[in-house]
């Protein structure tokens, strides 16, 4: 292959996925930290939401940071999803005749569920954005311009909490395999120890992030967090 280019390879797609995935991880960590402010009460939470909007002022205009973040995340999402879709298509084309019998020996459930799990996260994400960012839907019928109250109203609705928890389960699984996979894609797991560490990190991130996000809705539903 004389005219081969590294940039056109499947591995480059994976690299883009890993990079965008890591961005997401960074984002969800921060996001989760923010959500946990709900435990500090109405004012602290709303202050934090406002703070996000004014971050970087006067260097950045109002909501400047948020917009940079949003753009980055959207670009990353497009890249992540595009690469995922391309690789999915490739994988399907790589074996059009299926096995009559096929056993999985080594792969974790999370690893085999990355694509469907990713799709779940995507669907959730759209709903999530519609609900909290763009559309501002309050399923309880209450006000939508007070972030804290919107949050509490939402999670006091049991099925909203359920959807949210299901999504967090999907996210946890995605992170469990995704973290290790990204390390491997980045070429950081060249020996047994590095591989073990990457896998442990996957567990930690999965539990911390999915768990951290789930804490708020569970506590709302349980009545620990109230208006």
């Amino acid at each position: 292959m004389r005219d081969a280019r590294a940039s056109r390879s499947t591995i480059t797609l994976k690299l883009l996925m890993a990079a965008s995935g890591l961005l997401f991880i960074l984002f969800v960590l921060l996001h989760m930290y923010g959500n946990l402010k709900a435990f500090s009460g109405h004012d602290a939470y709303n202050e934090y939401a406002e703070h996000l909007r004014t971050l970087g002022e006067p260097m950045l205009p109002f909501e400047g940071f948020l917009w940079i973040q949003r753009t980055t995340l959207v670009v990353a999402l497009v890249v992540h999803v595009y690469a995922a879709a391309t690789l999915w298509r490739r994988a399907r084309g790589a074996r059009t005749q299926r096995y009559v019998m096929k056993k999985n020996l080594a792969s974790s459930f999370s690893s085999r569920w990355m694509r469907w799990g990713g799709l779940t996260i995507l669907l959730f994400l759209i709903w999530h954005l519609v609900q909290f960012s763009f559309g501002k839907v309050n399923v309880a019928g209450g006000e939508t311009n007070d972030p804290y109250n919107l949050l509490v109203d939402t999670f006091e609705t049991w099925w909203m909490t359920l959807i949210y928890l299901a999504a967090m389960f999907a996210l946890g699984m995605h992170l469990h395999h995704g973290t290790w996979s990204a390390a491997q894609t980045l070429g950081l797991t060249n020996n047994v120890r590095a591989r073990r560490n990457a896998k442990s990190l996957g567990w930690i991130l999965a539990v911390v992030i999915a768990g951290g996000f789930s804490l708020v809705p569970i506590c709302v539903l349980a009545g620990v967090i109230t208006k």
Binding site: T10, L13, G93, R95, N104, S107, S111, H177, W180, T185
Partner: peptide, 10 residues
């Protein structure tokens, strides 16, 4: 036409 790797380890 081989697929891309997803590091699942099979």
């Amino acid at each position: 036409g081989f697929g891309g790797c997803t590091n699942i380890g099979e």
